[in-house]
Every structure is written in C-alpha cells, then in structure tokens.
C-alpha cells in the first residue's frame, strides 16, 4: 500500500514537472511579411543607402552614400525631400552614415567629417554639433543624450554620451584591447537609456546601463577569433561577427549576424532584454543593417543597397 502511495506521489511530481517545463519552453518563431520596397532598379530614388531612421509618423529618413545625401520619404514611399551634396560645408557630406531622430531634429554623422550635422524634420540644415573624433556609430539614448562610439585608434573601445551642444555627459570603456579594430561595435538603446552593444569583430553582445555598468554578455556564435589580413603594416580583422543591433517596441534585441552566420548577413538572432536567446530568423536578402521603427516594422537592405525593404514582423509562440 505504501509502495503504491509513493509511486503515485512520484507520478504526480513527474507530471507537474513536465507540464511546467513545457509551458516555460514555449518557443518563439518569427516570420516576415513584406510591406513595401523603396527604390527599384529602374528609378533613381536610392543608390546606396547606409543609415535609416523612421519618425513617429512613419516618415523614413535615409542617408545615401553614393549621392552624398539625406533623403526623407513619406510613409507611402514618396520622396519628400533630398538634402546634402558632396562637400564639407554646412549640410554637405563626404560619406554620410548614421541618421537618428532627436526631438524635432534629424542627426547625421559622416564617416569623414567630425561632428554631427543637425537638420530639422524638413531637412533644412540647422547646425553642427562639434565632436573631437570621427564617429563609428551613434544612437539617441534619452531626451538629452546621444551615445557615440568615436573612432580613436588602438586601445579605444570608449562610448561617449554627449548632449545637443556636444558637451560630454559621461563616458565609459567597453573594451580595452590594443588590437586594431577589435573595439568596433554597433549600438542601440532602450527606453530606459540602457545601451546594447554588438561587436563587429568579436563574438560579444553586451548590455550596459548609462553609468557604464555591464549588465550581461552573450556569445551566440562561439567564434574564438576572427580571421585577419595584413594590409600594409597593419593586421586587421576582415570577417564580421555581428553587423547591427536594434530593438523591437517591447524591448527584444535583434542582432544581425555577419560572415560567421549560417546565412551570411541574413540571419537575425533575437534575445530578450536579459540577454536570453529566443530565436533566429532569416532575411530574404543580405543586409548591412537592420532597423525596427516604433510601430514594429523591420527595415533592411534590398538589391545590394539600391532598395530599402520594409517588413511586418509576425511573432508566433508555439
């Protein structure tokens, strides 16, 4: 009798355990439905877009490096205005890169010009925010804060937070390597101002608070070290681990993989805000960047940069 009693106890325990694990092991699946393609092969809307930002009304702001411009498109994809041109004067570009919406302004970095150019939402040039170095990546991370990764050189790996006047608010080191370019990273920020950082040439995805405290690290691809090539006197890494990072409206972290992914420059790894891996899905075409707007639409590159593709993200929990 006692034996039966114990057996039934174990059976109930086993049942409860199985049910609880099954409910917590719900897996997330993501698929994409294409909403719009901007820039086709026979038009002259986009030649090679690099940076993207979308405002709250759905207007799309793109930097186009082949014609040195900043372009604004309506939510339906009509070109509203084009600004810029080649040069180093006010509102001109040599190699426009990142674009961000900050208050009522549009901020643009240039790979070859120091500082940040500020435009209004109609793309009229307003001013240049001074900054001492060229900028690798830029994200707005609060109502008064702009996070930057400056290109400093060996021993860098420094993230700087500045205000709208270019005054430094704070800075912290996320990498202290002396090896060239190993500090290269892409960043994004959540609503609380935390910074997510993915390394270009290292297998590291990290989250920091604004004080520079590391909250977690994740290494998804088990890449120990990337292949390098000697260019002139310098040995530089040539294969990219992670290309870009962005967040969806509920704070999931989307990381675009590079050369070490199963589908190069197409696989997107999704993590939760605590750094736990959730799922992977694949873009239809290779991209250099990904962006998710406030409505949750995902944007990526099409036709090698001459098109921008907009997708609705479809989440499925099994």
């Amino acid at each position: 009798m006692r034996k039966v009693h114990w057996l039934s106890f174990f059976f109930v325990f086993f049942l409860l355990f199985t049910l609880s694990t099954a409910s917590s092991a719900k897996s997330l699946r993501i698929s994409l439905r294409e909403e719009m393609t901007l820039g086709h092969l026979d038009d002259d809307l986009i030649y090679m877009w690099v940076g993207i930002a979308v405002d709250e009304s759905g207007h799309i702001y793109l930097t186009d490096t082949l014609d040195y411009s900043l372009k604004k498109f309506s939510p339906a994809g009509r070109l509203v205005k084009k600004a810029g041109g080649r040069g180093q004067g006010p509102g001109e570009f040599m190699a426009p890169r990142e674009v961000q919406i900050f208050q009522n302004y549009v901020l643009v970095t240039d790979q070859n010009i120091r500082g940040i150019q500020v435009f209004d939402r109609d793309l009229n040039f307003i001013k240049r925010i001074p900054f001492s170095h060229l900028i690798l990546d830029m994200r707005v991370c609060g109502p008064q804060a702009i996070a930057l990764i400056p290109i400093v050189g060996v021993g860098a790996g420094r993230l700087k937070i500045i205000d709208f006047d270019g005054q430094e608010v704070t800075e912290f080191f996320y990498e202290k390597t002396k090896k060239m370019m190993l500090d290269f990273a892409s960043i994004c920020s959540d609503k609380e101002g935390n910074i997510y950082l993915v390394f270009t040439f290292q297998d590291r995805i990290e989250k920091y608070n604004l004080q520079g405290k590391k909250l977690w690290t994740n290494r998804l691809l088990k890449v120990k070290s990337v292949s390098k090539e000697k260019i002139n006197r310098f040995e530089v890494p040539t294969r990219v681990v992670y290309k870009d990072v962005t967040l969806d409206p509920v704070g999931r972290v989307f990381v675009l993989g590079g050369h070490y992914s199963k589908h190069q420059s197409r696989d997107i790894y999704v993590l939760d805000a605590q750094g736990r891996y959730l799922t992977t899905f694949t873009l239809p075409e290779e991209s250099h960047a990904i962006y998710i707007d406030q409505q949750g639409f995902l944007y990526s590159r099409g036709n090698d940069g001459v098109s921008l593709r907009k997708f609705k993200i479809i989440y499925q929990v099994d």
Binding site: L41, D42, D44, Y47, M48, D64, L66, D67, N303, D304, G305, V306
Partner: peptide, 8 residues
C-alpha cells in the same frame, strides 16, 4: 543593380 549604382 550595377547599372543603377554606376548611374548614381
């Protein structure tokens, strides 16, 4: 694609 880039 190449033609378009060249055009730009």
């Amino acid at each position: 694609i190449i033609k378009k880039k060249l055009r730009g």
